[in-house]
Design a binder for these strands. Structure first.
Length: 581
RNA sequence: UGGGAUGUAGCCAAGCGGUAAGGCACCAGACUUUGACUCUGGCAUUUCGUAGGUUCGAAUCCUGCCAUCCCAGCCA
């Protein structure tokens, strides 16, 4: 017996390690393995380096998945480091939201929370080292002049007249820059590399600028701040990062990254590897555009459930598990790609199908009266909480003479293949009875159907008929006198076109916004069991989709549900086909 | 007319000289007390951007061409 358990455990462990080996390989993991095999590195240490100047989106989640994932796969660790070298854009507010989002996704930086600003003293020393080596100089050219001197894509740049200042003068000037003796923009420190390099990044890049701004962490201690290209490789070196993983646009910066690593006496030499960032259909991912949507109130905020931000997806009801599954599936490569948002939707459906308790909710209510059902009778039916998890058992759902059903579930003149309720048709009320439509009431003025009448078959109690006859349609319902009302927000894709970023094809991305990306439904009728739903909890509303109690606007008295994603709808496809053909 | 990178199905993506994995989407069917889920089958063999070359053999190696993306912030 004990042996069996041990065997099973051993099996489980070998399965786990095999699983680990089998986790999808990508080119980054291959490079890491080569580095480990060659002895270039003996371990793996990565970092996730957001700038605290905005909210994280699902593209950042991909980066985290790669950074933290690589560390985990090779038994290493991953730091969370804020790249906070530009005080004019950054703020503590973002630091907190970012930490929260990283944690929510389940990534753990343990005690390794760092800030590039922690290294300002060391970085300053490194700059002095470069000056002393004759590899950096203070340049008095104006911003415009620097641009002119840089040359163009096809013409080499020319050297700054200040390029050959003496080490002593540079040291003096740089110190005085630090001491605040000069105006913002009047001087910069530049690396002395190669003004004729075909790579613009190597044409004496600026590495320090004067910014007389208070920094959210260092206050007014500094009035010069290092540039990304200088700070990043050196911060990586200071932290002992082995693999500095970043997106493709930094590919051109790699020679510069390596130049700093090789020209400064760093304690360690990290390696930069680039991968393609994530794009998705029917949304935008740039911070600038996302920010514009928020500022101009196209959405309610960074956490609007239509936003691709992590806070938006969280509020919408997405689970970290679904997001990680999505990231696992999209892979890691260097080809610029735009992933179909249908894949993300598939992932959340798959996750929630297993987890979400079922409930009945009628979004657009239509009264259904069972004429042969006793006036005052109330029955309670036991209906499964989740057929995917039978062990969870059932819930009680009250039933009475007057019900609400979905308006879509009745048609006066049904088309072919419609097998819901219609005059003379019989359907099953989920978990209750078979009912046959005997008539309906229509408002002559508006043409609106206000009420449907039917009779029920008492023998079909629970939804089975003893004579073995079957019905094709099963519809959901709620008991009118037991139901309670709630608000339901139907979210759809934010944009009408798959590629709102494509200006050539679609013009300004804002012109592609989907005017129906949010539909607010009030007076929806929900089964009583939902009354106690907690904010953030998720349900499958039978035949409709997955819904999540809103964490911001929902109150005990007026529950608000967000639609996370609708169920797949074969009928909608058939119906659409019928009308177009 | 500079440099860096990338082209495998509608969308991702394996493939690493031995004869095109997988997922999503889509189509057809089975099952179904959710038109969901699940299951079965289909979906690149004048084919791997394209034209040549090397090889017994090429998506994989070589050469040319084409297309797309990134780079001229004192942003990251």
């Amino acid at each position: 017996m004990e042996d069996d358990i041990k065997k099973a455990q051993a099996n489980e462990e070998t399965n786990k390690s095999e699983e680990l080996k089998q986790t999808p390989k990508n080119f980054i993991f291959e490079e890491i393995e080569k580095d480990l095999a060659s002895g270039r590195y003996t371990h793996v240490h990565t970092r996730f380096p957001p700038e605290p100047n905005g909210y994280l989106h699902i593209g950042h989640a991909k980066a985290m998945y790669i950074d933290f994932g690589a560390a985990e796969k090779y038994n290493g660790v991953c730091n969370l480091r804020f790249d906070d070298t530009n005080p004019v854009k950054e703020d503590v507010e973002y630091v907190e939201s970012i930490k929260n989002d990283v944690r929510w996704l389940g990534f753990d930086w343990e005690d390794r929370l760092y800030f590039a600003s922690d290294y300002f003293d060391q970085l300053y020393e490194y700059a002095i080292e470069l000056i002393k080596a004759g590899k950096a100089y203070v340049c008095d050219l104006s911003q415009d002049e620097i641009r002119e001197y840089r040359g163009t894509l096809t013409e080499p740049g020319k050297e700054s007249p200040y390029r050959n200042r003496s080490v002593e003068e540079n040291l003096d000037l740089f110190e005085r820059m630090k001491n605040g003796e000069f105006e913002e923009g009047s001087r910069v420190l530049r690396a002395k590399i190669d003004m004729s390099s075909p790579n613009l990044n190597m044409r004496d890049p600026v590495i320090y600028r004067i910014l007389k701004k208070e920094h959210h962490r260092t206050g007014n201690k500094w009035c010069i701040y290092p540039m990304y290209d200088f700070q990043h490789p050196l911060s990586d070196a200071i932290e002992g990062i082995t693999h500095s993983l970043c997106s493709l646009e930094y590919e051109d910066h790699r020679p510069l990254y390596e130049w700093f690593i090789n020209n400064v006496s760093v304690p360690h030499k990290p390696r930069q590897i680039e991968f393609a960032r994530l794009n998705m259909t029917y949304t935008v991912m740039s911070k600038r555009k996302l920010n514009e949507l928020v500022q101009n109130k196209y959405v309610s905020g960074w956490d609007d459930p239509r936003m691709p931000t992590l806070s938006g997806l969280r509020r919408r009801g997405y689970t970290p598990e679904a997001i990680k599954d999505f990231l696992e599936r999209i892979g890691v490569a260097k080809t610029e790609s735009t992933v179909d948002i249908a894949l993300l939707e598939h992932c959340i459906r798959e996750d929630l199908n297993k987890k979400a308790p079922r409930a009945m909710a009628v979004l657009r209510p239509l009264k259904l009266v069972i004429d042969n059902y006793p006036e005052d009778l109330t029955e309670e039916f036991d209906i499964e909480i989740n057929p995917e998890q039978p062990e969870l058992g059932t819930r009680k759902v009250p039933f009475s003479r007057v019900l609400y059903i979905e308006r879509d579930d009745f048609m006066e003149n049904p088309p072919k293949k419609y097998y819901r309720l219609a005059p003379g048709r019989e359907v099953r009320l989920k978990g209750a009875y078979f009912v046959t439509c005997t008539g309906f009431v229509k408002d002559e003025n508006t043409g609106e159907i206000t009420e449907v009448h039917c009779t029920y078959d008492p023998a079909s109690r629970g939804g089975n008929s003893p004579d073995g006859r079957n019905v094709k349609g099963t519809i959901h319902w709620v008991s009118a006198k037991h139901a309670f009302e709630a608000e339901v927000r139907l979210y759809d894709r934010l944009f009408l076109v798959p590629n709102p970023d494509d200006e050539k094809e679609n013009g300004d991305y804002k012109s592609c916004l989907n005017p129906n990306s949010l539909q607010v439904l009030k007076g929806c009728k929900l089964e009583p069991a939902l009354k106690d739903a907690e904010p953030g909890s998720r349900y499958q509303f039978l035949r409709l989709g997955y819904f999540c109690v809103d964490t911001v606007d929902s109150t005990k008295d007026c529950l608000v549900f967000n639609r996370i994603v609708p169920l797949k709808d074969t009928w909608a496809k058939i119906a659409a086909k019928e009308t177009t053909t």
